[in-house]
Amino acid sequence: MKIILNNREEVFESDALTVDEIMKIKRFTFSKIIVKLNNTFIEKEDYDKTSVKEGDNLVVLHLLAGG
């Protein structure tokens, strides 16, 4: 499937993956992560229950202290 991940086209072999699986494939292991799927925030406890499909827009941000 083809999705938009952080504004870039990204192709995965599987047709459906959970947010959790994508994070593992992409090695997103930062301490403070924010996930938005099609403009909706996904909470950490829902990463493994939320599936990402063809054409979805996924944003994975990591927040850092400082300002």
Binding site: I34, N39, F41, L61, L63, L64, G66
Partner: peptide, 27 residues
């Protein structure tokens, strides 16, 4: 400065004032 408050404002603006632009500083 804190990540918790950065997350908080991100969600508040997105949920309660989605018409507003939010410009964040990270890193």
């Amino acid at each position: 400065d804190k990540t918790e408050t950065k997350e908080m404002i991100m969600k508040v603006v997105s949920h309660k004032m989605p018409e507003k632009y939010l410009i964040m500083g990270i890193g």
